[in-house]
Computed example of a mutant assay.
Amino acid sequence: MSDEFVGSETLLQMDPTVVAGLTWGLKRSFLGYLARTPMSQVSLGSGAGVTTQSEFWFPLADASQFDVQRGDGVLKFSGNVRFIGHGGFLHVLLDRPWIEVTADSALLSFTECRTEDPTDQRMGVASLTWPTPQDDQGDWIWPEVPTALASAGVELFNDVYPVGEALEPIRLRIPQ
């Protein structure tokens, strides 16, 4: 996996609201904390990008298991964002996000890569309040999906934020 340091050279040159993918600002206070922490790093890999508003963008990988009419299924995205601070004691990897929607819940998960042998085991990081999509120029969009920290996400952020803590909303665009 090759990573690039997030800087002006990795800013998205396109508007993420018109390209298929997931855009997420994560948690502003967490990003602010990292910005104030000496020698912290944020890196992107596998096609992920960052917007001019410091939101992370993950390209759409597969929407074939999602049924927009029923409002359920799985949306898969590619790319990763890695946050490192305190000489590596703080290490958060958000890799290959999925959104899994059922009749009862919606969850944003990431591949759990904590060992040298990563699997497709998923970690549910945020619960979503799933709205009805809007039709926008032949694409389905979700302009603002509220998110809250799920129980597995608490561990990911070293127990700093409690279950249910509001996170930044996500934005989605998928082709019809």
Rank of each mutant, 00 (worst) to 15 (best):
P38H: 07
P38V: 08
M39R: 15
S40A: 15
S40C: 03
V42E: 12
V42A: 11
L44G: 06
G45M: 09
S46N: 14
G47H: 02
A48N: 00
G49L: 09
G49D: 02
V50Y: 03
T51K: 00
T51Y: 02
T52P: 01
T52F: 13
S54R: 15
P59G: 05
P59W: 07
A61H: 09
A63E: 10
S64E: 12
F66A: 05
V68T: 12
V68L: 07
V68E: 12
V68K: 11
Q69Y: 11
Q69G: 05
R70V: 09
D72F: 11
D72G: 08
D72C: 10
D72N: 14
G73E: 07
V74A: 09
L75D: 00
K76Q: 14
K76T: 11
F77W: 05
F77D: 06
G79Q: 04
G79W: 01
N80T: 09
N80W: 14
N80H: 14
V81Y: 02
V81E: 00
I84Y: 01
I84N: 07
H86M: 11
G87M: 06
G87L: 06
G87S: 03
G88V: 07
F89G: 03
F89V: 02
L90F: 06
H91L: 08
P97G: 06
P97Y: 11
P97F: 09
P97I: 02
P97Q: 10
W98V: 04
W98C: 13
I99L: 13
I99P: 07
I99T: 05
E100H: 12
V101R: 09
V101H: 03
A103V: 09
D104F: 12
S105Q: 15
A106D: 04
A106E: 05
L107T: 03
F110I: 13
T111I: 11
T111Y: 02
T111Q: 15
E112A: 12
C113H: 12
C113I: 07
R114Y: 09
R114H: 11
R114K: 14
R114I: 11
T115V: 00
T115N: 10
E116T: 15
P118K: 07
P118S: 07
T119D: 09
D120R: 13
R122T: 00
R122G: 02
M123H: 06
G124A: 10
A126S: 07
A126L: 08
S127P: 01
S127A: 13
S127D: 11
L128I: 08
L128H: 01
T129A: 13
T129G: 06
W130K: 08
W130G: 06
T132N: 12
T132C: 05
P133E: 05
Q134F: 09
D136E: 14
Q137Y: 13
Q137A: 15
Q137R: 13
D139T: 06
D139G: 01
D139S: 15
W140D: 04
W140Q: 13
W140M: 10
I141K: 13
I141P: 10
